[in-house]
Design a protein around this nucleic acid. Structure first.
Lengths: 229, 229
DNA sequence: TCTTGCATACTACCATACAAGTCAAGAGAG
DNA sequence: CTCTCTTGACTTGTATGGTAGTATGCAAGA
């Protein structure tokens, strides 16, 4: 993975600060387990690797630490945060609470254009069945984002994205376990309930859907105990 | 407000980094409206004021910007974020969703020690009636924190704290409007419902309680339009 | 064998210097 | 007077140097 160098970067890309590029790159690497929980990384090392100074690296580190993805131990080093069972479960809890209220809102006043949009997502998701886990995770994120955006809760979506980061690390590790088809079925039930204006059914569907990780977590913890705190 | 200087700081206080001290100080100043929405602040200015270099100030700024309390405009300046009606409403929405699920959990298995703890909070809150708004806001925060902690959702509480920051700025401005007695009554109804194991009642109580800001917001926006985006 | 002291090589934290973008005031031309 | 351009004083972004705290390995001693 190569970060755009100042000299090679054109004027357009200069709009995005070095910090933001580093942040996005490192965040993706952590979630995709390219940087494994517990791994040690240093400001100097990353700075040299991408050909930038230590300062923007440091600031990217701070952002990731705020998100719970890095652990900065003063004068000791910086490490990819090990997965905390409690942190994942709490993230799941928050996400369920927020998304439940979102789909209730949607079901109380179903908009045909939104329903159509969601059904398009479902079609795309079915195409992915049997494909790569990475592709499905992206499609899944787009689907849930559409739900939040449809309810006019873009700011709430930001919260969910933060929570998702914790969960997605587990998701990625468990990508060989979960059945994409089953998840798409759950999405379908959710959309159906929203379309019918069945707020209770929609709430039940999303809550059940988001409880899925509760089954994966213990399995992953047993398979990769070194990734857990 | 004076930041501890390195030479005066004893060995114990050295544990807290300059960044964290600045962050806490500035955050409080913003919420208390000492730094008003739209106000311009610069890294250099703050650094000189507290006798530190620009770097820790900058990092504190970044943290506050991530929280939506500052707006950093590259090469232009840094400003206290104006209050966004949508951001406040979304923060309220997220908070209601999360706290609703928390109190449902509590009501499903009421713990006598927690109930007693909550009732102690209520007593203290009644003592504050007629007192300063600042005192009540602290007591209110402690009460809601006890709810989250009682459900074992400390990580969820962190999310709420972030959301609260947006709301508290409005709260502080509207402190001459709201009736502390009414809020304490709502807290009492909530605790009663939890104690009785009435999950539905507890949920209804917290949702109603947290909708209060919806009445304050338009009033504040009319009184201080310059604070809003 | 185990402990203790110390040299050494790291680390992140903070200070400082430089670079680059923004904006407004003012000089100068029309 | 009005418009344009330039200049310079800001701003934040990035680079680099210095400092104190921490881990580690080794040597000396119990």
């Amino acid at each position: 993975m190569q970060l755009a160098r100042p000299d090679t970067a054109s004027l357009q890309t200069m709009r995005v600060s070095v910090v933001d590029q580093l942040y996005a790159t490192l965040r993706g690497a952590i979630i995709d387990n390219d940087l494994s929980p517990g791994a040690r990384i240093s400001e100097t090392e990353i700075a040299q690797h991408y050909g930038v100074s230590r300062q923007p690296v440091r600031e990217a580190f701070i952002k990731l630490a705020n998100e719970g993805l890095l652990e900065i131990r003063p004068q000791r080093g910086t490490f990819v945060a090990k997965i905390s069972r409690l942190a994942v479960m709490d993230a799941r809890f928050v996400r369920e609470a927020v998304e439940a209220d979102i789909v209730k809102l949607l079901a109380q006043a179903p908009e045909p254009t939104l329903i159509a949009d969601l059904r398009n997502h479902l079609v795309r998701q079915r195409d992915i069945i049997g494909g790569s886990a990475r592709d499905f995770m992206e499609a899944d994120e787009a689907f849930h984002h559409t739900l939040a955006a449809g309810a006019g809760k873009e700011n709430a979506w930001r919260v969910i994205v933060e929570m998702k980061a914790q969960m997605d690390r587990v998701r990625f590790l468990s990508s060989m376990h979960f059945s994409v088809a089953r998840l798409v079925d759950q999405h379908t039930q959710l959309v159906d309930a929203i379309a019918e204006g069945d707020a209770g059914g929609a709430e039940q569907a999303i809550r059940f859907h988001l409880k899925g990780i509760q089954q994966d977590l213990p399995v992953i913890e047993q398979e990769h105990p070194e990734y857990f705190r």
